[in-house]
Nucleic acid binder design. Sequence first.
DNA 1: CACCTGACTGAAT
DNA 2: AATTCAGCCAGGT
Length: 125
Amino acid sequence: MGETRLIMAGDFFLKVFRVVRLIPEGRVTTYGHIARFLGTGRSARVVGYAMNASHNDRTVPAHRVVNRVGLLTGKHFFDGTTLMRDLLESEGIVVVEDKIQEFSSKVWDPLEHLNQDDFFESSPQ
DNA sequence: CACCTGACTGAAT
DNA sequence: AATTCAGCCAGGT
């Protein structure tokens, strides 16, 4: 079970990627929510760092991760200045001046929708 | 091995 | 209500 450790990328980043892949279309979550779900509530900043490292991997919907008040703080790391916003708007999210409108109804908290035990049991990828 | 860097956050101002 | 501060910690150098 814990033996498959062939991958070089840090476990933490991989776990972040796995959570982000589970964010439903049209919903978003925050760096802090992901950190708390992974049991490291003080690593929100590192979650952002992981998102930066995910830009090779098209299977990670990085545009669905925003800061705790719904600001698109990571937009600068997408190609062009509007890609992050465009992707969100294509999923029905309304963004005004880099801020998601009706944010509280769009947030998807992994702690409410995923089971941590199942998540940690299941193998990466 | 000892720094340095931040897609962050909550508390203090 | 807006802004600044300081702690945070996985990776990179």
